[in-house]
């Protein structure tokens, strides 16, 4: 059993660089990978520029965003002791997106440093806090999901409204960009914007990993095991908001990764909510990278939205969840 798990983790680890190679090899232009790699970072040939300035940052951003979403989902599920929780469902993503939309379209430009991410995280945090307050402390799964859906719908409507009044000719189309997510045309600048916030998120969740473990037994047991402080849930929420908010600010909201990934990999870490964080980050990165490879290779008039691809993968998973529940196992 344990050996089997180790093999699976090893497979995931090995698959990531392979997928990265796949992503670097995918694109509308055929590129001589080996010579472009040999030319290095500062290569001036168009092959090298395409590889180092276009494909690599996009692939790494997919990894980063996927990791943030996977880890955020694992933390959310651990904190709420609920396998149906995910950052997007609890409004974190749409909160971040709304803040980003307000800032970008009515405020300063894209390249104004960390303010965008900071605001997005503020948005993510307030949305999650609103859901938490609305549902009440120690709320049942049903009430929490209900509150999440309500806040989420409201925030999505606000995004659409804000974009409608935005001084942009592409308002309605931009709504889709934000709500379905995209990694197209992202470069190193966005990657470096998101990176510190993901790091803060990882750090916050690293310090709360044992709280998540103890919380598997319930709030009272966790408190008796030395995790009484209200700082722990706050730190988790901050970690999720930081990682997911940073990701959403550069890539828009991408659903289902945060929900599906922790589910899939939970057996690989013997259900341990702490190790689940890291394995979910790994699997989320892999899933989003594969989804982006699909997006890149999909031929169409418009680029396929990556949120649509993850939903394609995520929705059947939901069907499967319902079917197992019908067989009377749980839920």
């Amino acid at each position: 059993m344990l050996k089997h798990n180790k093999n699976a983790v090893f497979l995931l680890l090995a698959a990531l660089p392979l997928a990265l190679l796949g992503a670097l090899g995918s694109g509308p232009v055929s590129v001589d990978l080996s010579s472009a790699l040999a030319e290095g970072w500062s290569g001036q040939s168009s092959d090298a520029v395409i590889l180092w300035q276009l494909r690599l940052p996009r692939a790494l951003l997919a990894i980063l965003v996927g990791a943030a979403l996977g880890m955020g989902g694992a933390a959310m599920q651990g904190m709420l002791r609920n396998p149906l929780a995910e950052p997007a469902l609890l409004g974190v993503s749409s909160g971040a997106a709304l803040a980003a939309v307000l800032f970008l379209y009515y405020g300063a430009a894209w390249k104004s440093g960390w303010l965008l991410q900071a605001l997005a995280i503020g948005g993510a945090f307030s949305a999650a806090a609103a859901v938490w307050l609305l549902a009440g402390r120690g709320a049942s799964a049903g009430r929490l999901v209900l509150a999440g859906v309500a806040i989420n719908a409201f925030l999505s409507a606000l995004i659409a409204l804000a974009l409608n009044y935005a001084p942009s000719m592409f308002a309605m189309q931009e709504v889709v960009f934000w709500l379905m997510g995209s990694l197209a045309n992202r470069g190193w600048d966005q990657l470096f914007l998101a990176l510190p916030f993901l790091a803060v998120g990882v750090l916050c969740l690293f310090f709360t990993r044992n709280y998540l473990r103890a919380l598997a037994l319930g709030e009272d047991s966790a408190a008796s095991l030395g995790f009484q402080s209200r700082a722990y849930p706050f730190l988790i929420l901050l970690g999720i908001a930081s990682a997911v908010g940073g990701a959403v600010a550069v890539a828009g909201t991408i659903g289902f990764v945060g929900l599906v990934v922790p589910h899939l990999v939970r057996p690989l870490v013997r259900q341990d909510p702490a190790r689940l964080l890291w394995i979910s980050a790994l699997a989320g990165a892999l899933l989003l990278l594969l989804a982006d490879i699909l997006v890149i290779n999909f031929v169409g008039a418009q680029e396929l939205r990556i949120g649509a691809v993850t939903a394609f993968i995520g929705a059947p998973f939901f069907f499967w969840l319902i079917l197992t529940a019908r067989r009377g196992q749980w839920l």
Partner: peptide, 11 residues
């Protein structure tokens, strides 16, 4: 004005 539509031009 900002729009994601212009993202490519800002790359």
């Amino acid at each position: 004005h900002f729009a994601l539509a212009y993202l490519a031009a800002r790359h």
